[in-house]
Every structure is written in structure tokens, then in C-alpha cells.
């Protein structure tokens, strides 16, 4: 037996003993949660059997969970519950008195067409359903993005570049407005694809990418803080719920 294998067995024995002791002291579910957290954290060292175990357990359990959720949260209320409510009234009594919507036959047919992909001969039929999904998505999003990312953005970027308040000229607010105005215009220039970025236009584009990078820098720090809060949550679980060191 080589040293590596021996070390693996020693680690496995320690893990098993710690697991059993922990169950006796803290209960089964908390112990399982804590050990799975540690198994996932072990990836920070390198890929190992403990990580693989947690990874496969996570993927398998979550895939089954989402499949179940997909049936009960999508198929039942949005298809069966609308197509023929009495069919699912035993499971979701709230749907019992809803009127039947025969139009739901259309998504039912599209769903069946999508499942035709499972057939090697009739798989091509699924393209019709896919085309419908992609086409309606594009159409719906066109309106949504036009409203939120275009019209509303224009509305929010419009302001005076000379701001006054009760005491007269407001230098701070004016500088703030000028920066936002310049940043938006230069950013738009950067995202202009059909003209070469050179000369004054190029200078505007370069300013635009600088503004974007400054924004990303600020956003980076902000988002890292949010991620640290996730880590803090896990640490609280390990040191509080499991080890009882935080009360």
C-alpha cells in the first residue's frame, strides 16, 4: 500500500469518526449539511472524491427536485389547471372553480411537438415548437427592452447641466449631471458598430470604455461584498448551528 492510499484511508476514517460523533452530538440533518459544505469547500484544495460525492449528490437531487417543481409549479397550474380544472382539483383545490380555457390546447400541442424530439424519425417536428418559442421570445422582449432599456433610459438621462438650489448654483449636482451625461453619450459611441472608432469619434469611444471600466471596478467591489455575505452565511451555519461556537 503506497503512502497516498494510506493517507486517503486515514482521512476517510477521520471523516467517518467525525461524522458519527457529530450525529450523536448535533443530530443527523445538521451533520449532513455541515459535512456536505466541507466537502464542497474541499474543492479549494483540489478535485477529490469528497467533492465528487457532494457534486453528484447535489446535481442528482436538484435535478429531481426541479423536475418535480416543474410538474407541480408549471404543468399543473398553467396547463392542467387551465385546460380542465377538475382534473387537478384534488391536488390544488384553489383551481377547482377556475373556468376551463380551451386555448391552452395550443401550448399542449406545442409541448407534445417538442417531445417529438425523442423520436428519431419525427424529431424534425420539434423545430416548429422551438421556432415558436424563439420567435415569441424575441417579439415579447423587443417591446420589454424597448421600454425599459431604451425609452426609460433616455428619460432618466435627461436633466439640466446647470443645477440651482435655494442658495443658488449647485456645483456638486451640476458636476454629477455632467458626468452622467458625458458617460452615457460616450458609452453609446463605444457601442456604435458601423463606424470606425478614430478621430473625435474614436476619442469618444475611448472615453466610453474608460467610463465602463470605472463602472465595472465599482461594481466589482460592490458584488464581492454581496458574495462575502454568502460565505458569512455558510460560516454561521458551520460555527453556529453545527459547532455551537456562535450563539
Amino acid at each position: 500500500m503506497n503512502a497516498g492510499k494510506l493517507l486517503s484511508y486515514i482521512i476517510l476514517a477521520i471523516v467517518v469518526i467525525a461524522f458519527v460523533v457529530s450525529i450523536a452530538l448535533k443530530g443527523f440533518l445538521v451533520t449532513v449539511g455541515a459535512f456536505l459544505t466541507l466537502f464542497i469547500f474541499s474543492f479549494l484544495y483540489k478535485d477529490n472524491p469528497y467533492y465528487k460525492f457532494a457534486e453528484h449528490l447535489f446535481v442528482g437531487a436538484s435535478a429531481a427536485y426541479w423536475m418535480s417543481m416543474g410538474f407541480w409549479k408549471t404543468m399543473v397550474p398553467n396547463l392542467f389547471g387551465k385546460l380542465y380544472p377538475p382534473m387537478v382539483a384534488w391536488a390544488v383545490p384553489a383551481l377547482k372553480n377556475n373556468p376551463a380555457q380551451p386555448l391552452m390546447l395550443i401550448p399542449l400541442v406545442l409541448g407534445i411537438l417538442l417531445l417529438m424530439r425523442l423520436s428519431s424519425k419525427a424529431g424534425w417536428i420539434s423545430r416548429w415548437a422551438l421556432a415558436f418559442i424563439v420567435g415569441t421570445t424575441a417579439g415579447l422582449n423587443l417591446v420589454r427592452y424597448l421600454r425599459s432599456d431604451f425609452i426609460q433610459q433616455i428619460n432618466n438621462t435627461v436633466f439640466s447641466l446647470y443645477v440651482t438650489n435655494a442658495s443658488g448654483f449647485d456645483l456638486g449636482a451640476t458636476i454629477s449631471n455632467v458626468i452622467i451625461f458625458g458617460g452615457v453619450i460616450c458609452g453609446l459611441i463605444y457601442f456604435f458598430f458601423s463606424k470606425e472608432h478614430k478621430g473625435a469619434f474614436g476619442a469618444g469611444a475611448r472615453t466610453g470604455i474608460i467610463v465602463l471600466m470605472i463602472t465595472f471596478g465599482a461594481s466589482f467591489g460592490y458584488t464581492v461584498m454581496a458574495r462575502i455575505s454568502l460565505l458569512v452565511g455558510r460560516m454561521q451555519f458551520l460555527f453556529g448551528d453545527w459547532l455551537g461556537m456562535i450563539r
Binding site: D47, Y51, K52, E55, A61, A63, W66
Partner: peptide, 16 residues
Amino acid sequence: HYLTDEQFGYVAAVDG
């Protein structure tokens, strides 16, 4: 190939 809809389950598998 499909892994899972769960965000971090997917992340764990892709990292692997």
C-alpha cells in the same frame, strides 16, 4: 448534456 436547473448544482458540476 443536461445537468440540473439548480444554479449552484450546475456550477459544482461544471467546475468538476
